[in-house]
Every structure is written in structure tokens, then in C-alpha cells.
Design a protein around this nucleic acid. Structure first.
Lengths: 348, 348
DNA sequence: CATCAGATTTGGAACGTTCCATTTATAGGT
DNA sequence: ACCTATAAATGGAACGTTCCAAATCTGATG
């Protein structure tokens, strides 16, 4: 309640008639202080409106409780959910997070990382922007600060990662579509310069191969990994001589765009053309038609990534690379019957 | 590149043959130091791999460059975009942000706010959780830390706010629907315990009144402010004796749910029943049918809120309350013709 | 050559905590 | 009464910076 000058541990000590060291011990819940003084000190702390200065504390102990989280695109609900998953774990482990959005801008990302370093983070989780140079993390690694990549991945020494099994996911999609009788399947969306695209396309090819189907080059159609990208791409695709009967989209956002584009061309997704996504964002369950997709549980991935980081903060940082399994969620958009769909949705 | 012990300003001083004070001056770009020494010191800084310790710095200056941002729900793209808008401004003003997600949990919110206080934030922007007690911010206010509410609003002394003109928005929607000949208009979604609901419903009533239309109580239908909420609500609404010809939804998410629900009942949104939203989230432009909605530009709101906060950090914090104007964006979902729609979309 | 103004540079003393080595108090045993 | 072991409390020093007042350096001036 004091005016300008902040209340410090010394003020508390004076008011409680003990030394500042004792106050410090109370603050960190040490068992070395007697019950009586603990109570007295705590009451003074409350009545003076003291607020702990963590900056000063970890200047001395040089170990902070701040975790940096850098996300390429928070407006993409996949990454937003992942960030929330991280937040849950980080927060309940008694840490607090610096969260920054880079918007795929490398300079921004570099700036953000070094500012975080200057603030003394205990660890860093990054979903890196396109074209990220692993050297950007070297200063952190040199300082013994663990770094974990999530969702996306850049390889470098002493860097950990947690990504989902992109290839397996697309192979599952293709297997399912082939099982439903589709032979003409297109792959739409994504930018060839990122690892995820290569992995998913690889899975697509593997799935086609296993099903004994040929991949038509003009049906592998890169596009912006957004709703708009999907919508545009499908326009071009429908203009081609022979039309695919099924479209495996790079992710859910693209898949929604593909549905928009099909409707705009008078085709009903799910009935006239099968459409599948990847990510299983929340909306996937509730759009019409509900989207068949690969569930990668961004929230869970965020949690796992945070747990991985916390593990590394404690011990000597031995880098780990985790690939999380994915799961096919069948809904109406791939042409599965309504009844079937409803059941699957509930299980999702 | 040194081993464990961090490189400090003293190491730099020694290596460059100057005093630590001089190094400090170089660090903060002071004009008092000669060009020659500046260059020498800078080169030593680079070669030793020095990293500035902001914690130590603002222990001394007791003014930090950290801004706290607390958001009720990051997975809602409206708030996510708003957070990104804040990030842009905060970042380019040379600040860094603590960003936390409360998930509408009051305890979490309280915990997060006090941790941020302990870390010494320069200011705080909050999109408060339901039922937030303004007293929770008293310690910050007492410490002279400016607090700005964004999107949602809790009134209290010395607290600023920036909200959009919810009432005007819904009144505009109703005026437009009435102008298109609709007389039976329902209001769907939102929880009555938050200020936004009251404001929007108030605007709805005002609009109906001005158009000389009656509000039917059974057509004011609160529901969870989510896609799922909208979908459920519309089911109940369609079961009623007389059906509305237009549905003004609480927000875009609800509107999408309403569209889903209509389709599930065999009705085509935009053709059979007019649907409108509120927020103008990115997807609103690209869904089919494109959604008529109120544009509140979350990104811009985030930016404005951040600017408001920065203004207050500089000067004596005189609380401000800003109501940002909103704009009607007419698209296909309210039954406007396709041609018209396309033009409007571009202007949006 | 002494003086002075301006430009540079510099030693400490802070900032608010933690930690270590000591001191002081308490109680139990002979 | 004395010693000892344990419990509780305490005074600095340290963490890495900034800031102030004071010191030093540079030429130019008379």
C-alpha cells in the first residue's frame, strides 16, 4: 500500500522484526524457519502489499522460470491450439511463457529469439518459420538452453524435435480412399519448400504405390496452405481434361477451400468428389460435410513438446526426436454414409 | 564462446581495455562515447559472444520492456488475431510480450496476472475471462502499471478499455435485414452473463424497434458462443411453431453453426433463411455462402489496444475508454445476389 | 605555459534477491 | 553448572547492469 517506492524484502524484515535472510527463507518455503516467524512474516507480507521481484531473484540464482515459445502463425488454429497445449503444461509446472508470433518472417524470428535469450529463458519451443537456419539457435545451445522444435523441424546439433507422422498419415488416407474404390486421387496444397510437404507427399506416393495406383503429375498440385489456396487450386484442377474422383488435401484449411471451390463449381463435396484433410482442427467435426481427416491432436502435441522441454531443462540436454502417431478420422466428406459418420464423429 | 560462466560487461571491458561504464554506454548507444572506442567495444562484444542481461539491467533501472497480454481463449480465431495485432505493435515498439491463455478460468487468470506482476511488466492488456473481478487488477494499478481491457470490459477505477460498438453493429444488421423485407428475425447465441451479449442484444432490440418490428421472446435464443452452440440452437429454433426468415447470430462462429444446422435440416442458408454473423473472421469471406457479418477487425483492435497501452506507459496513466466503430459487410448469406456479393467481398 | 571548456572516460554505489558461513538460541545429557 | 547437538536466525558478499559525480584527456586560447 506504500506510495512510490516498492516494498522490498528489507521493508518486510524491518516490519516483522527479523532479518532479510529470514524473509527470503519464508518466501521460498524453507523448512528451516519456525512456524511462528513464518506466520508473522507472511502476515506482514500481505499487509504491506509486497510483490516478489523475480528479476532480482534470478539475477542471483541465474535460473529463470520463463519459457520461450515461438510460433510461426498463431492465426492458424492448429498452431494456436498447440500453443494452448504448451501453455497448459508450462503454466502448471510453475513456469510462465514468452509467446511470440513470427508470421513466417525470419528476421522477426531471429529478433524474437535473441530478445528471449537476453531475458534469460530456461528453454525454448519453436515452430520454425519457413527457411529457418539452424545456426540461429546456436547461441542458445552454447548457453546450455534446451531447444525443442514442434510440428516443424530443422535439423541441427543438440536440437530436439517433436513432429507428427506425416507420411503415415497420408498413406492411411490413400489406403482408405482406395479401399472405397477411388482410383483417381489428387494431392492438393502445401508449399514444396517445407519438410511437411515433402513428408506428406511421400506418404501419398507410398500409399498410391501400395494400392497399385499411378500418381499423375498434374494432380499433385502445390498451393498456399490456406483455405484460399485450396479454393484456387481446385479451380485449376477441375479445368483439367480428366477429373479426379478424390482429393487428398495438404491440411484441413486447404480441404475447406477445396470444398468451397467444388461447391462454387456446382459439385457437392462428399457426394460428387471425396475430400480429405489433415490436422483434424476443431471445425472439421462440425462443418457440413464433416471432414475426413488425420487427427494429429495439436493440443496434445503442444503438451508433449512442453513436457519434452521441461525434461531437458532439468537434466543434461540429450536431444530427442519424437514422432507422434496419427489417426484416421472418417467422416462424411470422403463419401462415407451418414450413419457411419455420426458414430465416428463421436469417437473422434 | 566461453565455457560455463557467462560473458559479462566486465569481461568485455577487460578485453577491450576500457571500463565497464564505457561498455554500458556503448550498449545503450550513448553519443558520449567516441567512434573509435564504440567500434572496438562492439567488435569485442561480437567476438566474445556476449549476451545482454536484461534482467540485471532493469533491476537497476526498474523499468522493463515486457508487456503482459492475457487472453481468454486463444483457440478462438478472433482473439488469436487480436493477439497477433498486439504482438505486431508491441514487438515493433521494442517490447516483448508475456502472452497467456486463461481458458475462461478465473483462478488461472489471477495466477497469471500476479506472476506477470512479479516479473515486472510495464503494462497489461487483458481480454478478461467471464466473471472477472476488477479488484484483481488493483495491485497493478497501485504499482502504477497501466491496464487496458480489450474486446471485453470490466469497469473499475484507473482501468482503460477498447471495445467495439456492439450495439451499433447489431442495429445495422437488423436494419439491413429489415430493408430486404425480413420481418421475422431471430437472435441466436451468446451467454447472457457477459457484457457483449447484453450490448449486442440491446442493439438487436433497438434495430427491431426502429424498423417497427416486434421481438419474439422465443426467438432470442442464448447458446454457447461457438459453432457447436449455433448448430444446436438452430435445431431447437426450427422446431418452433413459426420459423424466422432471418437469423442474426451472436458471432461468426455461431453463424457457421447455424448454417450447419440449417443444412442438416435440408435448408440452404442464404436462399431459404438469411444468416448473419458478427466479427468478420477470415473464414467469413471464403465459406459458402460467404457470410454477411459485422467487421470488427480484430487485428486492428489488437493494434489499437497496444497503442493505447504504450501511450499510457509513457505518460501519467489517464484511463481512456475507446469504442471502435464497426462496419457491415454484406455477402451472400443474407440472401444478397452473387454479383453484389463479390464486389462487397473485395471491399471488405 | 597555465587555464579552461568540452569531450570522454571511469570508479564506486546502487537495484532486490539468494546463498554461504557464522552466530545465537534452545534443549538434553552428564 | 557445563558441554554438545540441533534448530533458528543473521550479516555480508554476490549476481550484472546503470547511474552519478568526479577524473582525465584533448586542444584552443590568452
Amino acid at each position: 500500500m506504500a506510495g512510490k517506492g516498492k516494498v522490498t524484502v528489507i521493508d518486510i524484515a524491518r516490519a516483522a522484526g527479523v532479518s532479510k535472510s529470514t524473509v527470503s527463507l519464508v518466501l521460498q518455503g524453507s523448512p528451516l524457519v519456525s512456524e511462528a516467524t513464518r506466520i508473522k512474516v507472511n502476515s506482514v507480507i500481505r499487509s504491506l502489499g509486497y510483490v516478489y521481484n523475480r528479476g532480482a531473484a534470478n539475477l542471483r540464482q541465474s535460473r529463470s522460470r520463463i519459457i520461450g515459445i515461438v510460433v510461426n502463425d498463431l492465426t492458424n488454429s492448429f498452431f494456436a491450439e498447440m500453443a494452448v497445449g504448451m501453455d497448459n503444461i508450462v503454466e502448471s509446472a510453475g513456469y510462465i511463457q514468452f509467446l511470440a508470433h513470427t508470421g513466417e518472417n525470419l528476421d522477426r524470428q531471429r529478433a524474437v529469439i535473441s530478445t528471449m535469450h537476453e531475458h534469460g529463458i530456461a528453454g525454448l519451443i519453436v515452430s520454425p518459420a519457413h527457411g529457418t537456419d539452424p545456426d540461429d539457435f546456436q547461441p542458445l545451445v552454447d548457453a546450455g538452453i534446451p531447444v525443442v522444435f514442434a510440428a516443424r523441424y530443422v535439423s541441427g546439433p543438440h536440437l530436439s524435435s517433436l513432429v507428427s507422422d506425416n507420411a503415415a498419415g497420408l498413406a492411411m488416407v490413400v489406403r482408405h480412399l482406395a479401399g472405397m474404390g477411388h482410383r483417381d486421387i489428387a494431392f492438393v496444397g502445401g508449399r514444396p519448400d517445407i519438410s511437411i510437404f515433402t513428408e506428406r507427399l511421400g506418404g501419398f506416393r507410398r500409399g498410391m504405390d501400395e494400392a497399385g495406383l499411378a500418381v499423375r503429375d498434374q494432380w499433385v498440385f502445390p498451393a498456399l496452405p490456406s483455405r484460399a489456396g485450396g479454393r484456387e487450386a481446385v479451380g485449376a484442377l477441375l479445368a483439367s481434361a480428366q477429373r479426379p474422383t478424390a482429393i487428398a488435401a495438404f491440411n484441413d484449411a486447404v480441404a475447406f477451400g477445396v470444398c468451397d471451390g467444388l461447391r462454387a463449381a456446382g459439385l457437392e463435396p462428399g457426394r460428387d468428389v471425396a475430400v480429405t484433410g489433415f490436422d483434424n482442427v476443431i471445425e472439421a467435426a462440425s462443418t457440413v460435410p464433416a471432414l475426413t481427416t488425420i487427427s494429429v491432436d495439436p493440443h496434445g502435441m503442444g503438451q508433449k513438446a512442453a513436457q519434452l522441454l521441461l525434461r531437458q531443462i532439468g537434466s543434461a540436454p540429450a536431444p530427442e526426436h519424437i514422432v507422434t502417431p496419427v489417426r484416421l478420422v472418417v467422416r462424411a466428406s470422403c463419401g462415407a454414409g451418414q450413419a457411419n459418420t455420426r458414430i465416428q464423429e463421436i469417437s473422434a
